[in-house]
């Protein structure tokens, strides 16, 4: 498929997504009766409710007990040699279950071509509430990832085209934290075999087993609508052809209403597949129903 037709297909898909979102915007808002503003967070690059690069224990949307909710999101990370585009949708029920689907396109700007991946996610809130009570909200989740085309990952030494990450997350907000601001902290521990999220397959010549990695986010709400924070994501290193690096970002989030959430970040993805110094911007738009 040529580059032009690929881009046309993508913009057609995006156009459809935007049209659907605009149609739903005029529907009555379940989001207006549920949880508090910003407690749904944003949608991470794997389609899970969370921050940008880290899934959180919070469930996407504002659905509370016995309510249904949904979100649509579009994320872009544009660094020196690559661009990651993510379209994602979630459905949540009862502030207990989160079902998600994400489609990742990883464009190789220098080499040409792109890597694709589909991610089917499931999250279950075990206990606690992010706002109320002393204990943090704790959720477990899985992300089943399926490569679009395994030929390049395989050539680079990846063992499998598909894989499943398992994680447990704890998220807690303090309404009256330091400087009388609302703070949020998240810690996620993930069992994974994924190379570069799974875009470069799963397992490899160096290491083929599940490894535990840690991911963390800290954020401060300047007021009820604006939040600043940072994130860290540890990653495995399974392939001998290039060392895989941990990721960082510093973000600003904006929650103008329960309908819309926006984030803008400076992101440091370090070296990816041997191309060093991958820094750039990350943008995220989420619409909740």
């Amino acid at each position: 498929m040529s580059r032009v037709s690929m881009n046309t297909a993508r913009s057609a898909k995006l156009g459809w997504l935007v049209a659907a979102a605009l149609g739903l915007l005029s529907a009555p808002a379940q989001a207006e009766f549920g949880r508090l503003l910003a407690t749904g967070g944003l949608t991470n690059i794997e389609g899970a409710g969370g921050g940008g690069i880290v899934p959180w224990a919070t469930l996407a949307s504002y659905a509370d007990q016995q309510q249904w909710g949904a979100t649509l999101a579009f994320n872009v990370a544009d660094v020196d040699d690559y661009q990651l585009q993510v379209g994602a949708a979630t459905v949540t029920y009862d502030n207990r279950w989160e079902f998600s689907y994400a489609r990742q396109n990883f464009e190789l700007k220098q080499l040409g071509g792109e890597l694709k991946q589909s991610i089917y996610g499931l999250k279950y809130r075990l206990a606690g509430d992010v706002i109320y009570g002393a204990m943090p909200q704790v959720s477990i989740g899985l992300q089943h990832k399926r490569s679009g085309d395994f030929s390049l990952p395989q050539a680079l030494g990846a063992a499998s085209a598909n894989g499943t990450d398992l994680y447990v997350s704890a998220t807690k907000a303090w309404l009256d934290g330091p400087w009388h601001r609302t703070w949020l902290a998240n810690l996620t521990v993930r069992g994974t075999r994924a190379n570069e999220l799974g875009l470069l397959g799963f397992g490899g010549d160096l290491q083929n087993n599940y490894q535990w990695v840690a991911e963390a986010s800290v954020a401060m709400f300047v007021n009820r609508h604006w939040v600043v924070g940072m994130e860290y994501r540890q990653k495995p290193d399974n392939l001998s052809f290039a060392k895989e690096q941990d990721w960082y970002d510093v973000f600003v989030g904006w929650f103008p209403s329960k309908r819309v959430a926006v984030a803008l970040a400076y992101t440091d993805l370090d070296a990816i597949a041997g191309a060093a110094g991958q820094t750039g911007v990350y943008g995220s738009l989420q619409i909740s129903f």
């Binding site: 309404l175 009256d176 400087w179 009388h180 601001r181």
Partner: peptide
């Protein structure tokens, strides 16, 4: 102010249960 709002919200949120 945001500070005052947060202080009051924290007191009331503790009663949620």
């Amino acid at each position: 102010s945001v500070s005052t709002q947060n202080r009051l919200l924290a007191i009331l949120a503790a009663m949620q249960h």
